[in-house]
Amino acid sequence: MASSVAQLAGLAVGGAAVAALGTRQALAVGAALHLTAAVAVRLGLPRIDPGSGPSGSVAKAGLRGTAALMSTRCPRRLLLAQWLPGAATAGVEALIVAYAGQRHFAPGTYALLMACVPAGMLTGALVVGRLVRPPVRERLVAPLAAVMGLPLLAFAAGPGAGLSAVLLLCAGTGFAYSLGLQRAFLDAVPAAAQGQAFRLLHSGTMTLQGVGPACFGVLATVAGTGAAMAAAGAATLATACWIATWHTATPS
């Protein structure tokens, strides 16, 4: 929820900066904000002592922990289930401006379409996180993951601006599927390795959110942006079908 709100706020502030200052100056403002955030992290967060030990032991321990998690079936599949749809969604978001340009949408439409996915994520997180009980959330993992992918298939037909906004909003709401995996992931990891597990989950998410746009961007150069966005939906739908083959959302 915090991430979705931050994306929406960033889109709003970024759009205002572009309108007021121009693109080059807005990019400079963005760079300055990154530097400000780096200073805030450096000065505002407490330093954590990694403990005594030989040089490189922390990195080696991290690699050993990652290898152990990825070699165990239940944590590995739970990690992949959270990584893959996010990578596909990031690929779709990266193609929105190109798709809107190819369809000759009005310039203001770009920002609206970019905001639809995080707005859908926020809506889905609020509804599923607040109104749906945990056991039901866990049973809805595969259907909600399918909701992420199914609307994106329609981009193969080249929908207009209004329908595109609805499709992206609906796809964003399906991201709430990840709420149903959180307890299962926590239960699947030994208590001593939970910190390592969540670091791996976060770093893998960030990595694949960079890989996804690269992969679907290459596909877009060959097949077109609409087809690439539909392919991202098909990949997400395939992940949902894989999740549906699990006997239960929690480890046995």
Rank of each mutant, 00 (worst) to 15 (best):
G22S: 06
Q25M: 04
A26T: 10
L27K: 10
L27N: 09
V29F: 02
V29I: 07
G30F: 08
A31N: 01
H34P: 00
L35E: 03
A37T: 10
A38T: 13
A38K: 08
A38V: 12
V39S: 05
V39H: 04
A40E: 06
V41S: 07
R42W: 11
R47P: 02
D49V: 02
G51H: 11
S52W: 07
S52C: 09
S52A: 14
G53Y: 01
P54H: 12
S55A: 12
S55D: 12
G56Q: 02
S57H: 15
K60F: 06
L63H: 08
L63E: 04
L63N: 05
A67P: 09
A68R: 12
M70T: 11
M70F: 15
S71M: 11
S71H: 07
T72W: 08
P75M: 09
R77E: 02
R77Y: 05
L78M: 11
L80G: 15
A81L: 14
Q82F: 01
A87H: 14
A88L: 08
T89A: 08
A94Y: 15
A98E: 05
A98N: 05
Y99R: 10
Q102C: 04
R103A: 15
R103Q: 15
F105H: 13
G108M: 08
T109L: 12
T109A: 15
A111N: 12
L112A: 14
C116E: 10
V117S: 08
L122M: 15
L122T: 11
G124R: 12
G124E: 05
L126E: 03
V128W: 06
V128M: 11
G129I: 12
G129H: 10
R130V: 03
V132S: 13
R133N: 14
R133P: 01
P134M: 06
P135Q: 03
L140R: 03
A142D: 06
A142P: 02
P143F: 09
L144H: 07
L144C: 07
A145W: 04
A145E: 11
